[in-house]
């Protein structure tokens, strides 16, 4: 039911515009502001797809705002007339589950795990773009290949290496940062190098003639010029780290686990406290969604710059 009405609403909004523009009644009827033919089929199908794509998330949001009984007894789409609205779940999430605490952990994991790989990768990408050295091609092909390797290969060896019999940093932030840095590195180098190799080489040459070292050229010229690519990768990596379950679950303890791990724990819990799940899920999505919407332009540019994550 909702499908139909919302689709009609969206479609209606689209079509209402076409009456306005028009000189010749026949040919202008189906024209848009830029003079292209309006396509009713596209409008209807897209509206339908948008509704299908959005409805599950809307369902989560509405459910998160309903009381335990309402959640269990009626569908969320009946909330308009059945009621049962409450914000109690959001208070409950912070008071009675570990989601609130783990939000901070997620921030503390995600920010360094985003910045550190970028720094490491940017230096490497600079070398691959602007310096000539032996083995350059082989090393880069190695990086391209490693992008595809499943991270599962790393679990047992890394648990041994970082664990109590190794470096003893399993369960701490730094272990997870290093892992995310390592796993994100091939893609980071690849994307940044692809971008940097499009920068004009003459700028770098003239910087050299002016007496700049590579280190200075990097910080003063290449980093500022690469901001779009750096931002794009930063968003990608941030989303990836924030949304990661496996690494956080295996390499952090219950004291400092991330919000996604907490949410997964909540998903497993039946009965008591299950009414907090939708609210918890929504809270866990909030920061990535904000990041995503404010920086969408960069994100899209980064993806189209040839980002393929292994």
């Amino acid at each position: 039911m909702t499908h139909v009405t919302e689709a009609a609403a969206l479609g209606g909004k689209e079509t209402s515009g076409k009456e306005i523009s028009g000189k010749k009644p026949r040919s202008s009827r189906g024209l848009m502001a830029d003079g292209r033919q309006r396509s009713p089929v596209s409008i209807i199908v897209m509206a339908l797809l948008v509704v299908i794509w959005t409805l599950p998330t809307v369902g989560l949001l509405v459910t998160s705002l309903r009381s335990r009984d309402a959640q269990a007894q009626t569908g969320w789409w009946t909330a308009l007339w059945n009621g049962g609205w409450t914000t109690e779940n959001y208070r409950g999430v912070f008071d009675k589950t570990s989601i609130g605490d783990s939000l901070l952990n997620s921030v503390l994991v995600a920010i360094p795990a985003t910045i550190i790989p970028i720094m490491f990768a940017a230096f490497a990408a600079y070398a691959f773009s602007f310096m000539d050295f032996k083995g350059k091609d082989i090393l880069f092909i190695l990086i391209v290949m490693v992008m595809v390797v499943p991270i599962q290969v790393a679990f047992q060896p890394m648990l041994n290496l970082l664990g109590p019999n190794g470096l003893g940093i399993s369960g701490q932030y730094i272990g997870v940062w290093l892992l995310h840095t390592g796993f994100g590195m091939p893609l980071a180098i690849y994307t940044l190098r692809n971008y940097m190799s499009t920068l004009p080489r003459t700028v770098i040459e003239s910087a050299k003639i002016d007496g700049a070292t590579h280190f200075q050229t990097f910080w003063r010229l290449i980093v500022p010029m690469s901001v779009p690519a750096l931002a794009a990768f930063a968003i990608l990596q941030f989303l990836w780290v924030w949304n990661d379950l496996l690494i956080a679950k295996l390499f952090l303890t219950t004291d400092n686990s991330t919000v996604i791990v907490s949410l997964q724990g909540l998903l497993g819990a039946q009965g008591q406290g299950s009414e907090f799940l939708p609210a918890g899920a929504f809270i866990s999505m909030l920061i990535p969604l904000i990041v995503f919407f404010t920086l969408q332009r960069y994100f899209v540019r980064g993806l189209t710059a040839g980002a393929v994550k292994g």
């Binding site: 998330t57 949304n243 899920a281 990535p288």
Partner: peptide, 11 residues
């Protein structure tokens, strides 16, 4: 349509 890209597998 793009929005779910920001959502975790768990979410």
């Amino acid at each position: 349509v793009f929005l779910p890209m920001a959502i975790s597998f768990v979410g």
